[in-house]
Design a protein around this nucleic acid. Sequence first.
RNA 1: GCCAGCGUAGCUCAGCUGGUAGAGCUACUGAUUUGUAAUCAGUGGGUCGGGGGUUCGAGUCCCUUCGCUGGCUCCA
Length: 638
Amino acid sequence: MINITLPDGSTREFDGPVDGFAVAGSISEGFVRNCVAMEINGKTVDMSRKISEDASVRFITRKDPEGTDVLRHTAAHVMAQAVCNLYKDAMLTIGPVIENGFYYDFDMGPISEEDFPKIEAEIKRIVKAKLPIRRKEVSKSEALDFYKDEPYKHELIEELEDGTISFYSQGEFTDLCRGPHLPDTGYIKAFKLMKVSGAYWRGDPERPQLQRIYGTAFFDKKELDAYLHFLEEAKKRDHRKLGTALDLISFHDEAPGMPFFHPNGMELWNALLAYWREEHRTAGYVETKTPIILNRSLWEQSGHWENYRENMYTVTIDDTESAIKPMNCPGGMLLYKRKRHSYKDLPIRAAEIGLVHRHELSGVLSGLFRVRAFHQDDAHIFMTPEMIDTEILGVLKLVRRMYSTFGLGFHLELSTRPEKSIGTDAQWEQATNGLKNALEEYGEDYQINEGDGAFYGPKIDIHIKDAIGRTWQCGTIQLDMSLPERFDLSYGGEDNEKHRPVMIHRVIFGSIERFLGILIEHFAGKFPLWLAPVQMVILPINDSLAPFAEEVNASFLQAGLRSKVDDRTESLNRKIREAQLSQIPLIITIGEKEKAAGTLAIRTLDGTVKYGVTRDDFIAACRENIAQRKLELDLFEK
RNA sequence: GCCAGCGUAGCUCAGCUGGUAGAGCUACUGAUUUGUAAUCAGUGGGUCGGGGGUUCGAGUCCCUUCGCUGGCUCCA
C-alpha cells in the first residue's frame, strides 16, 4: 500500500508502485495531459518515475513556470538531436534553459541563420514522431565509456559523482542529462530558433570556440506569437533607431563607442540634469568637478593602476604618464584631503557629474547602453561609521523619489563579502549590518547575493523595470573600506583624535548616457512634457500669420518653454504630420480666428484638438505640468 | 578581443548567377498660402566603409582593415 499526499493535503492510496501518469490520472483524465513533470518530496522528476513508497507529490503542469523550463530543456535536446542528424560531425556539449528560451553549444563547423529552416524542419519531424523520452541511470564508468570519444561530455562526467548520473534518450538520440524531461517529443508545439553565436567552452577564451544556437519554445503557438510580438515592440523602441529618428544622438566611426549629442539630445540631457541637481540640492549634496586627466601616481595610490589598467586610456604629457579617469573617486579623494575635516562637517555629500572613459572591448559596444565615454551621476559620501544607516537610507529614499518621477519601478539587491576581499571581519560586519539596517528601515523586500560584493565593501544594487517589463541595473550604493585607507583620509573626532571616515560611492542614473537610452525606450520617444526636447511647435496657417506666430513663440520662450515656429511654406497637414512623427507633445495652430480671438488651438499626440484656450491659461498649465514633472499631459482637465 | 551576420545618396532600402549604380523620403529651385498625419513640378546628391587582389570588366568573387548588429558558463 502506497500513500501519495497531494499539495492540497489530500491523500490517495495505491496498491503498488505507481508512476506519475497513474497518480495524475486518478485526479482526472484531462489533468494527465496537462502534466509535464512532478515533484516528489521536493525533487523534480519525470512523469514516468515510479513511486514505490509513501510520498508527497506535486504535479508540474503547462501553466507552471517550471513546466515551461521542462519544455525548453526538452526542446534543447530535440534541437541537439536535429543538429546531430543533419551534421554528422557535430559534438554535443551543454544545452541549458535560459530566461526566454534555451541554447545548445555544439563543437561543429560554422553555421548561420540560413541553416535554421533546415534544422527547424528536422525538429518538426522529431516532434511529429512523438518519440518517447526515456531515462536511464548509469554508473560513472559506463558514462565515461559511452563518451570515450567526446571530450566535452567526458569532462562533464569527470566532475559528477557516481550514482547520480543519468542519460535521456529519444529515438536513436542519447544525451547526458539530469532531467526532468517531457514524456515525449510531441509536446513541443511552438518553437523557434532565434540566433547563432560563438561561445567558448566553459566561457574560457583559451578553450575551443563552440557554435551556440539559441531557441525558444512554448506550449502554445499564441504564447510564442506574443513573445515574438514583444520582441518586435522592443525593436520599435530601440533607442538607436529613435535616437536617429528624433535627431537626438549619433555615432561616428571617428570615435567608436562615444556618443555625439545633437541639439535635441542636449535639451533632453539638460532637462534631466536640471532635475537631478534640484533633487540633490534638496537632499543636501554639494556638487564638485574633477579633471579627467590625472597622473599615474594617483592611480597607483588608488589601486586602479594595478587592478583596472586594461580598461584605462593613458596619455603622456611632458614626459609624465597620466590616465584618463575611468572613475571619479580618486579625484574625489583629493578634494576631501584638500583641508582638514571635523566630525562636525560630516556627512559630506559630494556629487559629481563626472565624465569617465573606459576601454571596453570593441565587441561589447552597443548604442548608449555600452559606451567608452560616459558621465556618471556620482557622489561620494564621507561619514562616521555611525552614520552608515541613515546615509544609506537617505540614498534609498532619493532613489525612490527620482525613479518614480519617470514611472520606473525597481527592486533592490544586497551583495555581501566575496571570498577575495580586504578589511577586517569587524569592518565587514559593521558595513554589511549598516546596509541591512537601512534596507530594513526602508521597508521594501530585497534580495541577497551572498559573496557578490566588491572586494572593498558590500553594496546595494538597484534594478529598475521599464514600461515593457525589462529590467536594468542602474543605481548602485557601494561602501568602500579601501580608498579612505589608501588615501589616509581622516577627520577630527569629538575626542580630539584622528579618525578614519567611512565612504560610499553611489550613482542613481548610473551612466547618464545609458539612462537616457533607457528613458528613450521606456517612453518609446514620447517624453513627458518636462523632458521633451521640443515641447511645442507653432504652425501659422499662412505666411501672413508668421509674424504673429513669432510673437506667440517669443512669449512662450519668455515663459521658459521650449517652443519653435514652423513657418515653412508647406501644407498644414504636412507640418502636423512631421510634428507628430517627431513626438512633439503640443502642436499649436494659428489661423485668423486665433489671432482675432487671442486664443490657441492645441493638438496633442493622441490627435485631439482643444480650441479656444487663452495664451495665459496655456502657459500657466504648461508651466505647472513641467514644474511638477508630471508623466501625463493633463493640461486642461480639472 | 573572439564567433557569426552586415556596411550602397543625409535617412530607409532595391541592385538575379560579375557587364560601366536605382527608388522613396530629405535637401535645393519654382508654383501653391494651405484649418489638423504627406500639394504639385523640376533639380541636385553616391570613388557602393577604407586598402589590396582575381578578371577584358567587381557594389557583386578573394584577402585585409575600420565600423555596426547579435552573442561569448542563467553550467549535464
